[in-house]
């Protein structure tokens, strides 16, 4: 009996479908949230960078952005709050061949995990840290965060934030990061290029990606998701190699984007091997010495 060929009703596949757990899509991020865009740009960069994805691990902390580890179809860790970088450090030290990408939010990396960030950058751990900065604690209901701009409204500062926010690129630079860049989710191509470059770079790379949080930050500051993107479009000043101390986020003056730091210095593992594992250096294990 001749088999009748079935009409192909295959649903078209998104080009990144091979890197995401499609059974978990649609993801939990709100309509208009920029984390999805940053995540997709990170996946595109992983794909485009040509690294061995079987030896790539994505580590996330807690928060909206922390969910990314659960959506990526690679080895991934969804760690305890603020401890994404310590987990990543452990992974890298136990298996120096791995490529580590830390994908987390501003609250996780800079509020509860601030200290870990400082010390990983100081040691120059070989990893790529992508921080999705949505200017508040989105998942818990829009409380003021370490990155909320001065005078911005949040659940806990209903008439305006009296605090000065962090200047994240300055902090990364001051702690010794070897690659520092900042983009917004609207500058997706630049962001992807930057992440690709950072993944290929040895040492501690830090990329800040500004992203709208329409439900918690935008609603309290009278900004629709598209308004926020318009602000990014109008107020963005692309200035590579800008002085990190001038990079405060001030939407009135304009936000400076670009690649600010790109230097080389020996990583922690190189120093460690030189002193404690000289035999491994002689074995010429790939990824250990260069």
């Amino acid at each position: 009996m001749q088999e009748i060929p079935k009409p192909s009703k295959k649903q078209p596949c998104h080009p990144l479908d091979d890197l995401i757990r499609t059974d978990r899509i649609p993801h939990i991020w709100c309509p208009g949230c920029g984390i999805g865009t940053v995540f997709s740009s990170c996946l595109a960069a992983l794909k485009g960078s040509g690294i061995n994805l079987g030896k790539t691990v994505m580590v996330s902390g807690i928060g909206c952005s922390g969910r990314a580890a659960g959506y990526v179809k690679l080895d991934s860790f969804h760690t305890t709050h603020g401890r994404a970088i310590p987990f990543a450090t452990g992974l890298k030290l136990a298996n120096p061949e791995l490529n580590i990408v830390v994908f987390s939010g501003d609250g996780d990396l800079f509020a509860i995990g601030g200290n870990h960030f400082i010390h990983a950058a100081r040691r120059n751990m070989d990893m790529t840290v992508i921080c999705v900065n949505n200017l508040n604690y989105g998942m818990t209901g829009g409380q003021v965060a370490a990155t909320t701009p001065y005078l911005a409204k949040s659940t806990t500062t209903p008439v305006g934030n009296p605090e000065t926010p962090f200047n994240l690129p300055l902090m990364a630079y001051a702690c010794g990061a070897t690659y520092v860049a900042r983009w917004t989710m609207l500058h997706t191509r630049d962001l992807t290029d930057s992440i690709t470059e950072a993944i290929g770079k040895k040492g501690f790379s830090f990329i800040e990606a500004l992203s709208p949080c329409p439900v918690n930050y935008g609603r309290r500051n009278k900004q629709k998701p598209l308004d926020m993107l318009k602000v990014y479009q109008k107020k963005a000043i692309i200035k590579n190699d800008a002085d990190p101390s001038t990079l405060d986020i001030d939407f009135e003056k304009g936000i400076i984007l670009g690649k600010f730091v790109d230097v080389d210095r020996p990583t922690f593992i190189e120093h460690y091997d030189k002193i404690y594992r000289p035999s491994r250096l002689q074995e010429n294990v790939p990824g250990l010495n260069s």
């Binding site: 479908d17 899509i25 991020w29 920029g34 999805g36 865009t37 595109a44 997706t188």
Partner: peptide
Amino acid sequence: HYCEIICPEFAIF
């Protein structure tokens, strides 16, 4: 491909 890269939902390409 701009719709594809800006879509937060992997829903258009």
